[in-house]
Design a protein around this nucleic acid. Structure first.
Length: 556
RNA sequence: GCGCCUUUAGCUCAGCUGGAUAGAGCAACGGCCUUCUAAGCCGUGUGUCAGAGGUUCGAAUCCUCUAAGGCGCGCCA
């Protein structure tokens, strides 16, 4: 438990004690104490609505109840400076500053681990994200999914979940056949030969590149090779090429996975058959029109779904069910899938499948990433994977920069449509929020460097009681919120809470910076205390930025 | 037609388990660099929280309905 949590727990205990002491309620009538940080500074450091909550039980006016609570409150026990009753019956607590200044040595001691909590209780969670087909370049939607997914994993890991990151490789089925045929066509074209692209072919630049590469490497060797061998070669080659590119692109985007899970492996090791057998055993399967169906309507879906087509092949759903069964068998208590908005209709059938397999349907949680629209020169750019004219993730990062891209995607709630303003993200101006946060870090680094040059150092035992100016207190309060922000972002699966936090912390620092001077040879002790304070800010900022995959530069 | 998402300041968006006078940034205007990075700070003003009901001490927040926009509703993946 971190310092602020301890302070709050202590305060809650004392409030309960006061309520009981005043005879306002019995121990089992006592509601949970709700403490909040008032928006208005004038309303104190913490406030509780206990008096209003007790109005019904105690059959008294909230303000009268509040007075009874205050009268029976032992303020010597919880670093309380002052208590006031306000508004309809809020009790506002004003704390003395020691509870905040204690944060400084605590943060310095914790270092990289500051912000860690045990909110997740070591729950085994698997997060599957991106999982784009290896048939073309990653585009904007994937980039948003990658940024949100990776940030969420970082945040949940920091909040004490046991997180595993996984990518499901769709290396089986039709789309891979189309990939092979597309590669083949581009290969022929690179040799100057006529060859039409398949009807559902992939028209991306990258496939044209594969064709050229093959032509250079092998000349016309594969023109004459027997068709089935040729197909197999192009399939293998195309897949390998695409996967390597995918991994490289994601790695460059600061996103890595613990497991790359192959769809084909499900075919090979019989897991699809096992899953189908399980569904059949549980009575969720029937035959109709020469196909095998999943009776998903009984489990909340709006249509039954085909699992085995008339031609004997599986639909996309079938191996995916086997995959999710496998995930659960690997012992994950919670599966979080991050999907694009165009797949949201898929949720009910997947949850139905999980239930049909005998698991809790809520073991699966799906986070939907809404669409990204790119704006340039005030104009909306249309993207389409089919025509190959989509803006790729790589293009975007090259144009905007990695930090700004990651920040922009992490910045917005994932379930809202995102208007990505290219001109804004590119601009190296104060309109760009990523620089604002990084700038705070760079500023601190600069001050610390100069402090060292002047032989001004600090240690964990610095006298923090010299900290107390208004701006310093505001910074400290923000620093103390960090662990709480992390647990909330983790529990609610909302990475953008962290960018909000980063911005607020940077803002409180900038404000402090302009109001107070850190390096002051006339006042060495206070200088040391402030150096320790800004060092704590630097540590916290860096930790927070790393959660969303953004660098913390020492200089800008 | 059915399902999901969205609707908050001129624009882009926050808004916590329901709490006190709904907040930031951008844009506009005015200040602050002989002093630790001006990619910064300080100040000025801005709201039918899409609309209508309901729940209660109290609703932007929870429930119902309506409207607008987006996405989905394949033996595609």
């Amino acid at each position: 438990m971190n310092i602020l949590e301890q302070v709050q727990e202590k305060l809650k205990d004392e409030i309960k004690a006061a309520v009981l002491e005043a005879g306002l309620a019995t121990a089992d009538q006592l509601p949970d104490v709700i403490l909040e940080v008032p928006k208005e500074k004038a309303h104190g450091d913490y406030s509780t609505n206990m008096a209003m909550q007790l109005a019904r039980v105690a059959k008294k006016a909230p303000r009268a109840i509040a007075e009874d609570i205050v009268k029976n409150f032992d303020s010597s026990k919880a670093s309380i400076e002052k208590i006031e009753i306000a508004g309809p019956g809020f009790i506002n607590f004003y704390m003395n500053n020691s509870y905040l200044t204690d944060l400084i040595p605590a943060i310095l001691k914790a270092g990289d681990s500051y912000g860690e909590t045990n909110t997740g209780n070591n729950e085994k969670v698997q997060v599957e994200f991106v999982s784009a087909n290896p048939t073309g370049d990653l585009h904007l939607g994937h980039a948003r999914g990658a940024a949100v997914g990776d940030s969420l994993c970082n945040i949940m890991a920091k909040a004490g979940y046991d997180v595993s990151r996984e990518y499901y490789i769709n290396d089986a089925g039709n789309q891979i056949n189309n990939l092979a045929l597309s590669v083949e066509a581009r290969y022929f074209q690179a040799l100057g030969l006529e060859k039409d692209m398949p009807e559902d072919g992939y028209h991306g630049e990258d496939i044209i590149g594969i064709g050229k590469k093959l032509a250079e490497e092998y000349g016309d060797k594969y023109v004459t090779v027997e068709e089935s061998d040729r197909f197999e070669f192009f399939r293998e080659y195309g897949l390998k090429y695409e996967m390597e590119k995918l991994k490289r692109d994601l790695e460059d985007f600061r996103v890595s996975f613990d497991v790359w899970y192959s769809e084909t492996s499900l075919y090979q090791n019989g897991k699809i058959d096992t899953a189908l057998a399980k569904l059949r055993e549980n009575g969720h399967i029937y035959e109709k029109d020469g196909a095998t169906w999943f009776k998903s309507t009984e489990l909340g879906d709006d249509k039954d779904r085909v699992l085995i087509k008339q031609d004997g092949s599986y639909t996309y759903l079938t191996p995916d069910i086997a995959y999710h069964k496998d995930k659960l068998e690997r012992g994950f208590e919670k599966l979080i899938n991050i999907w694009g908005a165009d797949h949201h209709g898929y949720i009910p059938r997947m949850k139905a499948a999980i239930e049909a397999l005998g698991y809790e349907r809520d073991a699966l949680e799906v986070e939907i990433i809404q669409l990204v629209h790119l704006y340039k020169n005030g104009e909306k750019m249309k993207m389409s994977k089919r025509t190959g004219k989509a803006v790729t993730m790589r293009d975007l990062v090259e144009e905007v920069g990695l930090d700004a891209t990651r920040y922009f995607f992490a910045m917005r709630s994932a379930d809202t449509h995102l208007d990505f303003d290219l001109d804004l993200a590119v601009s190296q101006s104060n309109e760009n929020p990523v620089y604002y946060s990084q700038y705070a870090h760079a500023r601190i680094s600069s001050i610390l460097r100069q402090g060292e040059e002047q032989n001004l150092s600090f240690d964990e035992n610095v006298d923090v009681s010299l900290i107390g100016a208004e701006k310093e207190i505001e910074v400290l309060k923000k620093l103390g919120e960090f662990p709480l922000s992390i647990s909330e972002a983790a529990v609610k699966r909302m990475p953008h809470r962290i960018t909000n936090y980063i911005y607020e912390l940077a803002s409180s620092f900038h404000s402090f910076y302009n109001a107070e001077k850190v390096l002051d040879l006339e006042n060495i002790e206070r200088t040391k205390a402030r150096l320790a304070l800004i060092k704590a800010v630097q540590v916290t900022l860096k930790n927070a930025l790393s959660l969303i995959g953004v660098s913390a530069p020492e200089k800008m």
